[in-house]
Design a protein around this nucleic acid. Structure first.
Ligand code: MN
Ligand code: MN
Ligand code: MN
Ligand code: MN
Lengths: 224, 224
DNA sequence: AATTAATTTTAGATTTGTCTAAATTAAAAT
DNA sequence: ATTTTAATTTAGACAAATCTAAAATTAATT
C-alpha cells in the first residue's frame, strides 16, 4: 500500500478537463484542452508529457491522448470533491447555484480524503450536485444517467436535456421559446392526467407547461 | 476601492508566521521564520524582499523586520479563515481538535471572502477556535484575552495558562503532576463553595481537582 | 580591541508551470 | 499529388519559490 500520491492543483485541473472532454468524443485534442483551461497549446503539450511520465495519461505525440485508468480514478476524485463542495455551498451556506463553481474550483484541491468523506456524510451522501450532475462515491463509482423522455421522468427528479426526437423547425422553435435546449436542467413538477401535459421547472425557478406530444420528444438523462 | 489583491499561499503562510512570531517579542528574525516554516534562512530572505516590495513588511537588511499595517490586516484574515475552518471541522464534521490543524492549513488559502463570511454565519459567529484561540471577525477585530487567576475564570470558559504566581519548586512540581503548564488549555467545570476548590477539565477530557491556594496562583487568558 | 561564532544575505541552480515564436506534422483544399 | 492551412510540438525564455555554498554582516568571546 503505497502512500497516495499528491498531485498539484494544475495537474488536477488538467486531469479533470481531459476527463470531461473525453466524455463527449473519446479522444481529446490539445486545442480542446487549451480552450477548456484558458491556456496555450504549447503549455498543454508540456503538461501532457508530465502526465504521461506519471502514468496518468496514454499519449503518443501527434496521435491524440486519453486518461489511463489511474488518471481516470484521480479525475473522479477531484470531480467528487468539486460537486460535494458545490452541494455544501448551496445547501448549507445558501449560495446560489450560479455562484458556486469558482469557489469549488479551489476547494476541490484540498487534499484530505478523510475531510471529503466526512463532508459527504455530513451532507447525507447526496447523489447530485446543484447542477444535477452525479456525485461519485468514495470509490469513484456513480450511477450512469439513463435517457428517457419527459413523460417517463419521475416527478421532482432533476434531469438534463440530452436529445430531441422530432427535430422539425416547428418543434425547435417551440423548445427555443420555452427555454429548452440541449443541456438544460429541468424537473417535472406536475403531470396532468387529463391530457398528459406537464409542468416543467427550470433551475431559475420559472415554470413552463408542455404538451404530451412535446414531452415524448424531449429526452433527458438523470442519475440512478 | 481597488480590487482585493490575491496573495499566493506561500506569501500568506509567511505573513501568518511573522504575525505569530511578533506576538511574542515584537521583532522577528530570519531564523525564527525559517524554523517556523520548516524552510531555509536564504529562502526567508528571498521572501522578505518580496513582501517588502508588496508593502506588506517593514524590512531593512540585517536590521530585523515586522509586518506593515497592511501585512497585519492580511495575516489576520488568514488567521480568521484558519480558525473558522478548524471550528467547522470539529463542530460539524466531528474531527478531533488534534487533527484539524493540517487541513485548516490548506483551507485557509481559499480566497472567497463571501465564503468565509457565510461560513462564519453558518457556524453562529464563534469567538474561539477548538484550541481556545480567538477568531477575528470580518474586520480583523478580536477580543484581546484578559488575564485572570483560575478562581475568577467563569465556568465552562476555555482558557490558556499564561503565567504562574507562586513559582516555588513545590508549586511547579504540583502543577507538573496535574498536567498544568504554560500554554495548557483548561476549563473550570465545577467550583465547590465549601473550600473553593475546583475541578479543571483539559482538552483531552481528563479532570483534575485543585485547591483554592493553587487556583489563585495560576493565571489564564481567555477571550471577551 | 581582536578574534571567533552565529546570523543574514547574495550568487547561482533547480523545479514547476507558463509563455511566444518558430519548426514540424497532419489534415484539407486545390 | 501538390499546395495550403491548421494543429501540434519544440526551442528558448521567464516568474515564483525553493535550495546549497559562499560572502557579508553582526554578535559574542576572549
Ligand atoms: Mn480547480
Ligand atoms: Mn456542478
Ligand atoms: Mn497554510
Ligand atoms: Mn487553532
Amino acid at each position: 500500500m503505497s502512500a497516495a500520491p499528491k498531485y498539484s492543483s494544475s495537474t488536477e485541473n488538467y486531469l479533470k478537463a481531459i476527463f470531461h472532454l473525453q466524455k463527449n468524443d473519446g479522444v481529446v485534442t490539445t486545442n480542446d484542452v487549451a480552450n477548456e483551461l484558458q491556456t496555450r497549446p504549447a503549455s498543454v503539450t508540456d503538461m501532457l508529457k508530465k502526465l504521461k511520465a506519471q502514468k496518468l495519461l496514454l499519449y503518443e505525440k501527434y496521435k491524440g491522448f486519453k486518461l489511463s485508468n489511474e488518471g481516470k480514478k484521480v479525475a473522479l476524485q477531484i470531480i467528487r470533491k468539486h460537486r460535494l463542495w458545490e452541494f455544501f455551498l448551496v445547501e448549507k451556506l445558501n449560495f446560489g447555484w450560479d455562484e458556486v463553481h469558482e469557489i469549488a474550483e479551489e476547494l476541490e484541491h484540498i487534499s484530505s480524503k478523510k475531510l471529503i468523506d466526512r463532508l459527504d456524510e455530513f451532507l447525507g451522501f447526496p447523489k447530485q450536485d446543484p447542477h444535477g450532475d452525479p456525485i461519485p462515491d468514495s470509490n469513484g463509482k456513480f450511477t450512469v444517467p439513463k435517457q428517457v423522455d419527459l413523460l417517463n421522468l419521475p416527478v421532482n427528479k432533476i434531469a438534463e436535456v440530452s436529445s430531441i426526437g422530432d427535430q422539425s423547425p416547428e418543434m425547435l422553435e417551440l423548445l427555443g421559446h420555452k427555454g429548452i435546449a440541449l443541456g438544460t436542467r429541468v424537473e417535472v413538477k406536475k403531470k396532468f392526467a387529463f391530457d398528459n401535459s406537464l409542468e416543467l421547472k427550470f433551475k431559475n425557478q420559472s415554470i413552463v407547461t408542455i404538451s404530451e406530444h412535446v414531452a415524448k420528444n424531449v429526452y433527458v438523462k438523470y442519475d440512478e
